[in-house]
């Protein structure tokens, strides 16, 4: 079994990549996917700690994170479709005004 710090290292690397992608990408959908990547990195840390502490509560948290991610994806993608319909663009720095 892999030691705890190796699991956490994987988690940190994935989170860092997600955060970097969140900053450098311009397409809303890709940015959204980077958020999902960060959520997954956190889930991995939860599972690793749960395994290390022998406590299943960590896995329950992952379960909740997945449920919330599903709700978030449904609403978020609906917002993206609405934005695209109104502005005809997905580039985030062109969507910069509050007015239509």
């Amino acid at each position: 079994m892999a030691p705890l710090n190796h699991i956490l290292a994987l988690s940190v690397i994935l989170f860092g990549l997600g955060a970097a992608g969140f900053v450098i990408r311009r397409n809303i959908i890709t940015i959204f996917m980077c958020i999902e990547l960060m959520l997954n990195a956190v889930n991995l840390a939860f599972v690793g700690f749960s395994r290390y502490l022998g406590d299943l509560s960590g896995q329950i948290f992952v379960f909740f994170v997945i449920v919330v991610a599903a709700a978030e994806a449904a609403v978020g993608l609906a917002i993206i479709i609405a934005v695209e319909r109104n502005r005809q663009t997905l580039a985030i720095d062109e969507i910069d005004s509050m007015k239509m």
Binding site: M1, A2, P3, L4, N5, L8, A9, V12, I13, G16, R51, Y52
Partner: peptide, 13 residues
């Protein structure tokens, strides 16, 4: 990364 690696090193499941 460095901090987590150091702090949690040597711990096994």
């Amino acid at each position: 990364l460095f901090a987590t690696w150091r702090h949690f090193s040597g711990l096994h499941a």
